[in-house]
Simulated scan of single mutants.
Amino acid sequence: MNPLSSLGWRPELAEHLLPGTVPARVARVDRGRLAVLAADGERRVHPGAGLHADPALGGPAVGDWVALRGELAVALLPRTSAFVRTGAGRTSTAQVVAANLDVVLVVDALTADPRLRRVERYLAVAWSSGATPVVVLTKADLCDDVAAGVEAVREDALGVEVLAVSSWTGEGLDAVGGLLGPGRTAAMVGPSGVGKSSLLNALAGDAVAGTREIRGDGRGRHTTTARELHLLPGGALLVDTPGMRELALHDDAAGVAATYADVADLAQDCRFRDCGHGGEPGCAVAAAIDDGRLDPARFLGWRKLQAEQHRQLLRVDARARAEERARLRALHRSLRDQPYRTR
C-alpha cells in the first residue's frame, strides 16, 4: 500500500509533479517554514516562490499537497476543495483556511440557545468549499435537552447531518468517527470556546491540542493558535482551526443558495422575477412568512448573506462593478423621467 494514500493522496495528482520532486502534505504553515507529512515521515521545509505562482490560490494552506525538491517546496498541486473566507479586516483577499477536505465539521456548543444565524454563515462557506458539511454540537453533557437543541438546528440546516457529542462522556464520538475513514480529511471550523480542541483530543485518544478549564457559564477558552493537520488513530486526518472572530464570505453565491434552499425555492414562485420581497404583490416569500412556513429571522439571515456576497463580488469582479453602475444609472434615469415626479 502506498504510504501516501494514508495521507489522502490521489494518484491523479502524480501527473502534476515536477521532475525530480516528491509529494508531501502541508500539516502546518509557520512564518518561513512548512511542516509537511511525506512518505518518510514529518519534515520541516522552506516554501519556494513557486508556491505563489498562481495568485488565485493564495499560497500554501494546511491540507495542501506540495512538490518537494530536497528541503524546498517548489510547487502547489491542484486542490479538490477548499474552505475559503475573506481575510479579516477591510480587505477582499481570499484566505484558504484548509484545503483538500472531504468533510467540514461546523462546530457549535449546546450550552446556550442554538445560534442558528451563525451556523448558517459557516454552512454557507462550507457548502462552497466542495466538501460535505456536517454540524457537530458539542458539550451535550452540559445541555438539559439535547434532543430539542439538535432538532432546532436540524430544521434549519437543510440537507446537513447534525450530531450531538460530549468530549467528556464520549457520547456521539462514534458517530463523528464514522465520518472520518482512513485517508479522509476533515476540518473543524467554528468560533472560539465551542470545544473543537476537546473534540480533537477525544477523537485522537490523547491530548494533542491544548485546552483550558470550562468557565462558569459553560464555555471553554480556546487555545488553538494556528491551523494544524493531525493524524488520528483510525487513519483519518483532522484539521483543528483557531476560533474565527469573523467569517466573511468570499464569493459564496452557491453556498448561500444551498444553505437557504427553502427560501430560494420560495422566491422562484414570486409573481415578479425581480421581486424584492418587501411587500410586492404576489410575493411567495412574504406569504410564507405570513402563514408561518418561513421564520422571519431566517429570511433576514438570507438577505444579509446575499447582500454581503454581492458586496464582495463587486470588490473582486470589475465586470460586476460595471454592471452595477449601469443598473444604478438606469434606475436614476427612470426616476428622473417619471411624468409626475416633483420638481
Rank of each mutant, 00 (worst) to 15 (best):
R221L: 11
L51S: 02
D113F: 02
D295K: 05
L300T: 08
A109F: 01
P191D: 15
V119P: 08
E280K: 06
L232N: 13
A267E: 03
D144S: 09
L101A: 13
S198D: 06
A288S: 04
Q338H: 15
A82T: 06
A24Y: 10
V189S: 10
V74Y: 14
A236F: 05
L300P: 15
R212M: 14
G70N: 07
R184Y: 05
Y340N: 13
R118E: 12
R215N: 12
S81Q: 08
S334H: 10
R117K: 08
D206C: 13
A35Q: 13
R321A: 03
V146D: 11
G235T: 09
G130Y: 01
R69S: 09
L232D: 13
E213L: 03
P55W: 01
L331E: 12
L18Q: 10
A99F: 01
S167Y: 02
V29C: 07
L294N: 00
A286M: 11
T225S: 11
V160K: 00
A254S: 14
A261F: 04
Y122N: 01
A264H: 09
R343V: 15
A297D: 14
A27P: 05
A124M: 01
D217E: 04
L199I: 04
Q312V: 01
T169C: 08
A186N: 00
A98V: 05
D102R: 01
L13F: 14
P3Q: 05
V136L: 00
L116P: 08
A88Q: 11
V208Y: 15
R44P: 15
L231Y: 11
G8Y: 14
G172N: 03
A209L: 07
D240K: 09
A82S: 07
R154C: 01
G220P: 03
D217P: 03
R117I: 13
R118V: 06
T91Y: 06
D337N: 10
D108Q: 08
A148C: 04
I289G: 06
D290S: 12
M1Y: 15
M244C: 10
V103G: 08
F272W: 06
V146M: 04
H46W: 11
P47D: 05
G130S: 04
A286Q: 12
